[in-house]
Design a binder for these strands. Structure first.
Lengths: 214, 214, 214, 214
DNA sequence: TATTAAGCGAGACGGTACGTCTAGTCTTGCC
DNA sequence: GGCAAGACTAGACGTACCGTCTCGCTTAATA
């Protein structure tokens, strides 16, 4: 079952690992995912190709880890020393001011900004596209990046239910998708511009429903 | 004046074109998009490589056209000879029985089935993923495949507005995204299973809203 | 039996072939055989690596052909237009002045000079060494380069036998080895300097024998 | 003052050294010199790569020492304890029965057998070929393996001169090459089979000369 | 007897070249 | 002039070794 003996992770060079992360992210940002090559990453990182092949199975896996590392470092910087460690990668809980609509709009607007950030765009698109085609990678992407963030919505929506601000019979997981999916849709498919106004509208429509209230 | 002389489309071999479509779809279905090569398509189609490079700018473009052709042929078969030609690729208008929720559920369930069809899955995913990364290709994908379908929703939702079944101040375009995006989200990202029940729930939530009605 | 389909030799690029010969010989001369790489040859020749791998099975084979081509071109230059084409690669018959010893000394001195020519040394050594280890290549080397030259000696020695200048019962093939082998030995193994005087002595010893004449 | 500190030979592991010899000879015999790698030798010997690099400058040097060790062990076995230790590697002096031709034939026949021994063939060819290209290694090869053997011939030939069986004006060193070189030539270049009969003929031709005796 | 310093097995590292594969261009000869 | 065929330049792929460099671990000789 294990045709290749695994390398000894305890002797792994941290310097190389970080250099590879940096090079991978930089190159994807500069040239796009397709034109980024493992040889290029190795050269830019000042690293032997084998050092990449030893630790990662594919270019996509390298980029994924680089991305996760980026998120983790961003998190560390945001919550300096011993704060209440958040669960997600980049989201630190959804505020609960008592006004569900306002709270959701605030978070979704932030998400819009994040998606529109040109620095993150190339690697995020690359990774998402890769995950769409490669189921294994996609599962990892979902598990490590997306699910933790979605869990925060579930928490907030459950609190809203307890407060009577959300229908008791609504499934928070599905409700959340009603809010998130339209943003993702516009961003991924580039159908129409992704704006704060759009985020607000989505919240209004989703919470209030589309049919006329009597 | 033009740097590359354009080929004379009138002398183009139809036999080769069809053979290339077939080979492309078959190979993507069998081996996945990544492992499908232009050389492979040419060999399978019994065609010179140059015949592909002469008429298409990229592997993705070949697949896209093959896909559109497939849809067109399916349409011709469905509406044999001189019927009212539908605008979209595979959707022939959304029924209007007067019951908006039922009509939407019926259409979205069909969409679920289509997305779950293993035959279509590989090329559709490949094309979508490619469009996510390659903006030009993505635009073509949206224009030729997605937008015509979405237009049908707009038509149906406007009719609903006129009938008073949909809020008059709701933007049909955004309303439609509330319905479609969650399905796309689950399918693309493979977060959770994509079922008829899910489609129904989405319609219910979207139309009725998430907050309690007084 | 033929796992790889052979390329079509009639469409082969002559320009590339010659460029590869030149690059191979130059690089071996400059850096030695070990440090000469196929990648290096391709780069220097301005040629894709595949063009080398398409036509030759190994670096040694490339060098061998380059060497044979060099010899052939030298031959063409030496015998301009329609002269009596010589059989060997670089030797154009051994003179027959009637004085066997003088003729042999003259030819062997020329051989000494050739072996001591620094331009030819590196590739010749490389090829010979490769042939010593690789039997197939060695056979080709012998057949195409060495045997034609040795045949000239056989011819001359037979003439000497007919003239009574060589023992009638001596095998010309073995006699020839008595003359040639000591030069080769010194050159290959670098035991002692290879000079004209040595060549003369070898001829004298071989012809006259080592035991005292009564 | 010394850029690289020399390793302390007194603490060297004899077990490793022998294991390396064995592995090197075995691998060259099995796979040939080219396909034998230092990593392979280290792995087969159960030794760290550095242990090889610490004590030898090159793969060829390892093989050379392994070869010398093999010869030495063979010698020890042949002359058990305190006998007159011979200088050469495998040759223990040339017999002097008074019949020069017979003595030389006997020794050259033994050499023929040695060269035809399939066990020794691969490493000997590899080492010789390496020495042909690498002058430094070649010099070592000559000094440690070839010259001691040739010295035995010089001794025997001088004795023959004193006994009047060899021309007084003949240079023993050159005479020896007349005898040895043809055998080496056939073996190295594989031109024709190397047999006892050939060895005999060489002795006859060399001693008696090629020209008719009056 | 404890300390220390070297050789050692192991193997990760930065590199180079391998031989293969595909991209996209160019050329030849058939239709 | 489009076409099938395929040779061409270019360059990335993933692998194999190179020679260097730690890492703990024995294993002397020293303190």
């Amino acid at each position: 079952m294990a045709p290749h003996k695994a390398p000894d992770a305890s002797r792994r060079s941290d310097r190389s690992r970080r250099a590879i992360y940096d090079a991978a992210l930089a190159l994807v940002g500069e040239n796009g995912y397709r034109r980024t090559t493992i040889e290029g990453i190795a050269a830019r990182a000042g690293v032997g190709k084998q050092t990449i092949y030893r630790w990662w199975p594919s270019k996509a896996a390298v980029l994924m880890e680089a991305f996760l590392d980026l998120a983790a470092r961003a998190a560390e910087q945001a919550v300096p020393e011993g704060g209440a460690v958040p669960q997600g990668g980049g989201e630190y809980g959804i505020p609960d001011t008592g006004d569900l609509a306002a709270d959701l709009k605030s978070v979704l607007r932030a998400t819009v900004d994040e998606l529109n950030d040109p620095l993150m765009e190339a690697p995020t698109r690359a990774l998402t596209a890769e995950g769409i085609v490669d189921a294994k990678l996609g599962a990892e992407f979902i598990e490590k990046l997306l699910d933790p963030q979605l869990a925060l919505y579930v928490t907030r929506l459950r609190a809203a239910q307890e407060a009577g601000h959300l229908r008791a019979d609504a499934d928070p997981r599905i409700a959340l998708e009603l809010l998130i999916a339209p943003l993702t849709h516009r961003w991924l498919l580039r159908t129409l511009p992704l704006t704060h106004a759009y985020a607000d509208t989505i919240v209004d429509y989703a919470l209030g429903g589309l049919t006329p209230r009597p």
